[in-house]
Simulated scan of single mutants.
Amino acid sequence: MNKQIASADEAVALIPDGASIMMGGFGLCGIPETLIAALHRRRTRDLTVISNNAGVDDFGIGILLKARQVRKMVSTYVGENKEFERQFLTRELEVELIPQGTFAERIRAGGAGIGGFFTPTGYGTVVAEGKETREIDGVHYVFESPLRADFAFVKAHLGDTHGNLVYRRTARNFNPVMATAARVTIAEVEQLVAPGDIDPDVVVTPGIYVTHVLRGGPYEKRIEKRITAQG
């Protein structure tokens, strides 16, 4: 089945106001920047964005925050975005902060169809408030529920028109697990090839998890900070 979609603008036209969207990436590495930019142009609003972090003020998810398109962020780290900080402190933005390992496992559980899991992380803290707790072999655990979304935006280095994806090094990060945990997964790739052009042994995300695929770019590939040492 050919899953290629013509453009990012056509892809984001599928997303209604109020949708929940998982967005891959870690910092600014491996983020679906073409899809994010298209969503910004379309001005889709009241979004719940599930992402490890919130980008920076003028790039990535940061442009959605600045345009007031995001109603809620579900994240693990948000320290590089002043606009996020402002909206959070003024209570204009709803925020759910999750320990990073728990965040990853909740998404994995959502994709695997698991009903939840017990973890010791967060026991005795605000993270555990309102959640079931249990003692197992003398260790206290908190029950965490699966995390799913209406849509997932993922970024891959290489993909074919059947939706099979290959990631490049650390740009892999949260992208593969998010691809499994959404009702509709949209993948943007740097290189789009024909079926059969990718060695099956190197495929990370099989096409069965991908609803639409498009060639993204051009890519800026920014980094959050550059620190140089002087000898």
Score class of each variant (00 low, 15 high):
152 A>K: 00
153 F>N: 00
153 F>V: 00
153 F>T: 00
153 F>A: 01
153 F>C: 01
154 V>P: 00
154 V>R: 02
155 K>G: 00
155 K>C: 03
155 K>N: 03
156 A>V: 00
157 H>R: 05
158 L>N: 02
158 L>K: 08
158 L>D: 02
159 G>D: 05
160 D>Q: 03
161 T>C: 04
164 N>F: 01
164 N>V: 01
164 N>A: 04
165 L>K: 01
166 V>S: 03
167 Y>G: 06
168 R>A: 15
168 R>I: 10
169 R>M: 11
169 R>E: 15
170 T>F: 14
170 T>V: 15
171 A>E: 15
171 A>H: 13
173 N>R: 08
173 N>L: 06
175 N>V: 09
176 P>H: 08
176 P>I: 07
176 P>A: 05
177 V>Q: 10
178 M>P: 05
178 M>I: 06
179 A>L: 07
179 A>P: 04
180 T>C: 15
180 T>K: 14
181 A>I: 05
181 A>C: 06
182 A>I: 07
184 V>Y: 03
185 T>G: 06
185 T>E: 04
186 I>T: 05
186 I>R: 02
187 A>L: 10
188 E>F: 08
188 E>R: 09
188 E>K: 09
188 E>I: 12
189 V>M: 15
191 Q>E: 14
191 Q>Y: 14
192 L>W: 09
193 V>K: 14
194 A>W: 10
194 A>E: 15
196 G>E: 13
197 D>C: 14
199 D>V: 10
202 V>I: 15
202 V>Q: 10
203 V>E: 09
203 V>W: 06
203 V>G: 06
205 T>P: 12
206 P>H: 06
206 P>T: 04
208 I>M: 13
209 Y>K: 05
210 V>Y: 03
211 T>M: 04
212 H>I: 02
214 L>D: 01
215 R>C: 12
216 G>N: 04
217 G>D: 10
218 P>S: 10
219 Y>T: 03
224 E>I: 13
224 E>N: 13
225 K>I: 10
227 I>Q: 04
227 I>N: 03
